[in-house]
Design a protein around this nucleic acid. Structure first.
Lengths: 150, 150
DNA sequence: ATTGAAAAGGCTTCGAC
DNA sequence: GTCGAAGCCTTTTCAAT
């Protein structure tokens, strides 16, 4: 198993705050040389701790103001692979989580408006052998590192 | 409101795939000069479409193998600000979503193991005036690699 | 095994157009 | 929007701890 020390955690914290930080800036903050920091980041990627880098987007400002979680129920015979296949293909579905117990899965959905959300849910209900859905409409969201979102 | 054109969406898609892509690589892909791409990214930050950049981490490889969503119920008199305050301060709580209807909020939680998760839920139940919780244990997760298109 | 230093090349940034 | 130049960053190599 990978050995991840204090400095690695410090580097990860810095990259969580700003994924485009330069190696030289991080080197100053953690007290190592630029090359040493780069080697650690490369190693964290190699051992699978870092899976990638991405941009954080305010989808409401792109006209996708609706965010929801939908709980999905399936017959006991439905394989997990089928659940994932019939949900992850829907472009509005951002994430799919399979769940222990009830419900069987939960999906994170974004839509332009409530009508669009309804279309997405209708499509999901017809896809595969969904037996029931319950949608939780998100009013606001907060995280540790970012400011409140509309 | 901001004008976000096709090229902006292309740039956003490229940064979603890899948040550390260079401006010169993106310039090649979208068919503009390096300076033009940098100017667009700067502008997307200025108008609030891009809220930041971050690293993607496999928390299971850091020893945080448990992931769950917990639905929280509160008395009708509890202000949203109180809900957020009593949850976002818990380090294991990654995200807080306030919800229209029932439940009142949902939180995304990470923990080292099931005992740790139980401690976190117990702490939440004692904090504030929570009237009930329901925890959905995540077995697996999948993400849609491409952003929604306008 | 991990580090620091240095050099070459690439990238970012900014002003000018 | 493009171009170009200066400076900074990334990446690799090599020697030392």
């Amino acid at each position: 198993m990978p050995e991840v020390d204090e400095i690695d955690h410090h580097v990860l914290r810095l990259l969580r705050e700003d994924g485009r930080r330069t190696f030289s800036e991080m080197a100053d903050k953690v007290g190592l040389s630029v090359a040493a920091v780069k080697r650690r980041v490369d190693r964290l990627r190699d051992i699978g701790v870092i899976t990638g880098f991405t941009v954080q987007i305010d989808y409401a400002r792109l006209g996708w103001g609706i965010e929801a979680f939908t709980e999905l129920r399936y017959p006991g015979t439905t394989p997990v692979a089928d659940i994932v296949r019939t949900t992850v293909d829907v472009p509005e579905v951002q994430e799919v989580f399979t769940i222990a117990g009830d419900p069987d899965a939960m999906i994170h959905v974004r839509a332009r408006d409530l009508g669009h959300l309804q279309q997405v849910i209708d499509r999901l209900r017809r896809a595969g052998d969904v037996t029931g859905t319950k949608t939780l409409l998100v009013l606001g969201s907060w995280t540790h590192e970012t400011a409140p979102k509309a």
